[in-house]
């Protein structure tokens, strides 16, 4: 997905690259980026969601020449960006409810269509709770009708706004305040949870993709691709949460990178229900390296620890690697 800049050896993966022509550079490298979420928002230090949202919305803004409207679910993103009397948003934006962002997006798109404003495009966005749980019905409806909305899920794997409770996107074994690390099977139970990108694909909508805040170019390319299409589109962005994950605020991007490199979070693209591309793992690493940076998994490594749970998580990562062919060469899994 980065083929056009492979030639440049210094900083190919960096945000910018002075050696590239401006049109090939990332949106985030540009002085003219829209900064859809302005400074002064109240997200925690190192917030992955603030970052992911700016990446995605700025890219969408560039893709449609600023003609963009956003619907936002209740959640961290909404709360930290729009406490009266200040808002960080620089585009027309509406927050209605926790579970209806997709439907509000549908409404906006319908209005724009009626008014002949097809130049103005719509995104709807929310966290994993607002997307995979409470907003799932509206989201599925939006998909099924193929409404002209790009839905962006910023997945930080739990209800962070309310103080870190389990969602259907919470990973197995993770500690949250409703899946405490106590008892014989501490943390979030194995065998539960939703893989929303796959469910989205099952709707056979035009475009489904996953991305992380660790690979800006990939994320921007996917937003741009999504905005070049019409109909229902879904982009699921992994956004580490220092608070909820018990991680250093400086490690936000690193964690996202490790999530990809372990195979825990497969980064892929699908059109009409078929996977069309995957981001290959560049330097494969064991899941332990990822888990150890997060206090929500600390109980796996204490005394006596839970090596069997680490192994189970590794098995999940390995399964992803097999299933989505995340390795470039045939490497024993």
């Amino acid at each position: 997905m980065n083929a056009s800049i492979k030639f440049y050896q210094t900083g190919t993966f960096t945000v910018g690259n002075r050696l590239l022509s401006p049109e090939q550079r990332s949106v985030q490298a540009s002085l003219e980026r829209s900064n859809a979420i302005n400074s002064g928002h109240r997200a925690c230090q190192g917030c992955g969601e603030a970052l992911g949202a700016r990446y995605a919305v700025d890219a969408a803004m560039r893709a449609v020449n600023g003609q963009l409207i956003a619907a936002n679910a209740t959640g961290c993103l909404e709360v930290f960006s729009t406490p009266y009397p200040e808002t960080s948003w620089q585009l027309p934006w509406i927050h209605s409810l926790f579970g209806n962002a997709a439907a509000v997006g549908t409404g906006i798109a319908a209005a724009l269509k009626v008014k002949g404003r097809q130049d103005v495009r719509v995104i709807a966005q929310g966290g994993d709770g607002g997307t995979t749980d409470i907003g799932f019905g509206c989201l599925s409806g939006m998909f099924e009708r193929n409404d002209d909305v790009l839905y962006l899920c910023y997945d930080n794997e739990a209800y962070m706004n309310t103080g870190v409770q389990r969602s259907s996107a919470t990973p197995h074994a993770a500690r949250t305040n409703t899946t405490m690390p106590v008892g014989p099977e501490p943390g979030a139970p194995f065998g539960q949870g939703k893989k929303l990108p796959l469910i989205a694909m099952a709707h056979e909508i035009p475009y489904v993709a996953t991305a992380t805040v660790a690979d800006l170019h990939d994320l921007e390319n996917k937003v741009e691709r999504a905005m070049s299409m019409h109909g229902a589109r879904y982009l699921h962005v992994l956004v580490p949460c220092p608070l909820g994950w018990g991680a250093d605020s400086a490690d936000t991007i690193k964690l996202a990178r490790l999530a990809r490199e372990t195979g825990i979070f497969p980064v892929l693209e699908a059109e009409r229900g078929e996977v069309t591309a995957v981001s290959k793992i560049r330097r494969r690493i064991p899941v332990e390296e990822y888990l150890r940076l997060q206090k929500r998994f600390a109980h796996l490594f204490g005394k006596p620890g839970h090596p069997e749970m680490v192994a189970a998580i590794q098995a999940e990562a390995d399964r992803n690697i097999c299933r989505f062919k995340l390795l470039d060469k045939t490497e024993a899994v």
């Binding site: 210094t10 490298a29 928002h41």
Partner: peptide, 15 residues
């Protein structure tokens, strides 16, 4: 610094 724009891009606060 070789002006890779990383700091400019990765700051969650546009700072």
């Amino acid at each position: 610094c070789f002006e890779c724009d990383n700091c400019y891009g990765v700051c969650p606060d546009n700072a």
